[in-house]
Design a protein around this nucleic acid. Structure first.
Lengths: 194, 194, 194, 194
DNA sequence: CATGAATGAGAGTTCATTCAT
DNA sequence: GATGAATGAACTCTCATTCAT
């Protein structure tokens, strides 16, 4: 595949991403993507063979760019608690920003494609996040900033709450206040004074 | 509409429910339901005019039958903590039973139909559950069975964790052990000895 | 057929007439009539077997009631010219009253059902009208009120102009002024001073 | 759209025309046209989106080819009266040729689509014809070939008679003799000796 | 590589018509 | 007589997918 092809691939994926953001996963057709990309029907098939494949590649790209969920939060002299708080705020923003998010499309995609453990990118990200939060809390406990009995349990709990908030945002709707309440609840139980 | 019609309506809804359980919401067509019910194409339209309508009615039936989420758990001499534990176990069973559940279809439906607050049955159920759990915890605290600072906050937290588990079960997959871990975590934080 | 049946037949025809007036002929379905009549689907078939049959019977009823197109115009001491003028004014009203007219439905019906000469009610009415107008003009000429070379030719000409106006009213649209102009033109050529 | 597409478009329109001639407007379905053209269901939709659109384009084509209703009649040394006579004979032919005419379809179409004045092609053609006939009569009068008081009124009258004959041909049926009688009547009233 | 015309399966929907009650 | 549930054919429209150019 030549240089040009690679660029076109990327162009298609970026355009398709916007389509998925707008319409979720299921409602998107090859035609939608063709039209959004302004390329020929047959042309798309030269690069991808289904919306599923395209979506998976969009996800891959996405995760390459966002693998560093925590990198934003980490600065030289930030404490563990600071980082945790920043991370939660970041998540809040993400949660409430219903537009420009692949969230819904991702759920839809995983409903349809019950992937095995290995390929399940979502699971990997989840597990990775749990580990990082756990480390963060441990560090905080060591520093005396945080209080926690069961760091791993708490980390997992936090992630499930976030998942719960995320899906709730998409289904029952959720306000900024509601998210704040949950974030405060978590932090308070870690002994953070607000 | 005669007695017979009512029975047929019900028959269609029950059959449709199985179809939704099997295929989620979006992938279900009127044709699917027609075939599952073994009735004629036009016949279905005598009763319902879209998969959305059918799904909503399935949900209504469902909630009529399950409105008493807690009623199973409540026995004469059960303590608040007992009831809470039973409730959580019930939820665990539900969570893991991926077959025979409308969960996925419900999510899909709500993705597509961003209902206003009023009509949002899901939200109502969520709020109702929070209230009941809150009461339960309060009672437990009064009895000295449970320990809790912020009963409402905790109730909400529990519900979001459950939501998180529910969606995770559908997307990243989850084991019985994993659910147990979360349930124990919750109970332990309420001071229940396991 | 009992007394009751006869009444029901009539009820159906009168109701159906309104439906035809509203929707023309082709767009009307048996279902439309059933619903307008508030009777059962099967019930309608006991009386009529198609929209065509119903329409024909509506027409029959209609013509029974209107056979006397000229009767309105005729009074004891009206002269021939008076009657002709009144008749033309009557036709003008009919022309412009696009609602509450079967005109369009009739055209549609005859397009679809190219009836033989014998059954063609429309033709009969046309021919009858020509004869009456002819007589009228003759009388007028005898009275010295009107001037005319070829009474039959003029009568036919008048009727074709009226037909032309009628169809134009339904297709290209026509104003009261335009109709007046034509009526005046006709009358003037008969020597009537306006 | 390439050269080929344009040809196919035209092919479809020409084929569709035959279908409209045969079945009128309302009874024609996209399926009918698809079958007449021997193309695929979806193929037709690449070019047109409804029978209405197709019909309008057929009309457009038609009028491009017939805009010169009078051009046939006009020869170097023909007098005004000659041209008028030729025109009326042309109309007679058209009238009696019930097959291969869009007349009925046109009426049906306009029944269904009550177009505004501007878009109403029928009206434009009518008005244009009136004007030309008027001019013709004026010329004839100037030449001393014709006699006429009210050229415009007569022109309009002629057109309405023609309309009346046209619709009558479609509904009550009409013979060549009947048309001749009307044509003669018109010409005689213009002072043409037959 | 790229195009876009063409195909045909399949979804939704409406009705004329029948028939058991 | 009367009902209305049920059927199935017919129509509209949309797409994934292919293929000649």
């Amino acid at each position: 595949m030549g240089e040009k092809s690679i660029q076109k691939r990327r162009y298609i994926l970026e355009t398709a991403r916007r389509v998925f953001v707008e319409k979720g996963f299921k409602r998107v057709t090859m035609k939608d993507i063709v039209e959004a990309c302004n390329i020929s029907r047959g042309g798309l098939y030269l690069y991808f063979e289904s919306t599923s494949q395209i979506f998976l590649e969009v996800l891959k790209l996405e995760s390459e760019e966002t693998d560093d969920v925590f990198s934003h939060s980490i600065t030289e002299d930030a404490t563990a608690a600071d980082i945790l708080i920043l991370f939660l705020q970041e998540q809040k923003k993400e949660l409430l920003r219903r537009e420009d998010t692949l969230t819904q499309a991702i759920y839809e995609f995983y409903f349809e494609n019950q992937l095995g453990r290995k390929e399940n990118v979502l699971r990997k990200q989840f597990d990775a996040a749990v580990k990082i939060i756990e480390k963060l809390i441990e560090t905080g406990v060591d520093n005396g900033e945080l209080y926690c009995d069961d760091c791993q349990g708490t980390a997992r709990n936090i992630m499930f709450v976030l998942e719960g908030l995320k899906i709730s945002a998409q289904t029952i709707g959720i306000t900024a206040d509601a998210v704040d309440r949950e974030v405060f609840y978590i932090l308070r139980s870690l002994g953070v004074e607000m």
